[in-house]
Simulated scan of single mutants.
Amino acid sequence: MNKLSLLDLGFFIAESAASPKHVGGLMIYKRPAKTKVSFAVDLYRELLTFTDVKPPFNRIIHFSLTGMPTWQESETVDLAQHVFYHKLRRGKNERQDLYHLVSQLHQPMLDRARPLWEMHVIDGLSEARFALYMKMHHACADGVTMMRWAAESLAVTAEDRELRPLWSVGRRANKKRLQQLEDEMTSSLLSDLAGAGKRLLGIGRLAAMLLLESVKLTKNAISLPFVADGNTPLTGQVTPGRQFATTSLSMERVNLIRTRTRSTLNHVALTCLDGALHRY
């Protein structure tokens, strides 16, 4: 049994049908050469045989009136409620058709009575392709963590045919790693305490600026969160509807920008998103 952190509790408190708090990822694959047309459905059936579900994929959130919510591990997990198969119809199996299906799959909230994750095997894509779409509650894992788990589940070479579903790989930290984390937390505690005073002053200054801005005693001193001037495409209440879209960027161009600006890949990605939203 594990207590829920305050941050993760916030995801549950803020969650609604119009604003679900799960993350998702889509991976598109080409069917291996000289394999049957039934490759994807056979993969789906094989995935259902991996019934030894490891943490955190076997954890159910338990809410209590007397204390903080906790994660409780379930002895059995019915994979039929978590792993699903879909097949796109011929003529309706291009990329945009796949994105439309994923948009629909991403909309519903995850059932809190079960472990908070799903995997969807999507068959019938054009050019002998199939896809895996995974969604998981943000209190269980963020997008970066899901990407790392997905990478760990993939084979390094074409000769490696072992199937390693995400939920079947144990991820408990060993004692050495736990001790390392403890040492890191202890060593950083003093520096955190030393900077606490500065952070409190900064928070106080920010709160004062927000107050002055909200009562219109100052203007443009600081941007209020979730406030937009005028009627923009992003103004208004969020609805349950979702859309899925992708784009491709040349890593050669990205790396050139990183070198010239001495920035990270994340900086470039966020700048692209910021520019796209402003243009939209």
Rank of each mutant, 00 (worst) to 15 (best):
N93D: 05
M251G: 09
W71H: 13
K3A: 10
R129M: 15
M251N: 09
S16N: 08
L210Y: 11
G202H: 09
V41Y: 07
G197K: 08
H137V: 12
T246H: 14
S16H: 13
T51I: 14
L9I: 12
G275L: 06
T218G: 10
P233D: 00
R112K: 09
L234V: 11
D78S: 15
V41G: 05
Q72W: 06
Q81W: 02
V102A: 05
R129I: 04
T145G: 01
H120Q: 07
T261E: 13
M1N: 11
E94W: 00
G195N: 07
L101I: 07
Q179T: 04
V169G: 03
D42K: 15
P69L: 15
E184G: 11
L193A: 03
Y44V: 02
P108Q: 04
P225Q: 05
I257K: 05
V41I: 09
M119L: 15
S16W: 06
Q243I: 14
P165W: 11
C140T: 02
M209S: 07
N93G: 07
G195K: 10
A80W: 09
T51S: 14
E213P: 01
K135D: 11
P55I: 03
D274M: 13
A40T: 03
L190A: 05
L181K: 03
F50K: 04
S5L: 02
I257W: 14
F226S: 08
T239K: 05
A33C: 15
M134F: 10
H267N: 15
Y85F: 14
F11D: 04
F226L: 14
K219D: 04
L249K: 12
L200I: 00
P56Y: 08
A18R: 13
L212M: 11
F244D: 00
S187R: 01
V254A: 12
H138E: 09
Y44L: 04
F244R: 06
M27P: 02
H106W: 12
D183M: 10
G197E: 06
V238M: 14
I122M: 06
A196K: 06
L132A: 11
F50P: 06
K216F: 14
V83S: 08
T232Y: 01
K21W: 06
R114G: 01
I60K: 15
N58P: 06
V238H: 09
L132V: 12
P165E: 09
A141H: 03
S64W: 08
A228E: 12
D52V: 08
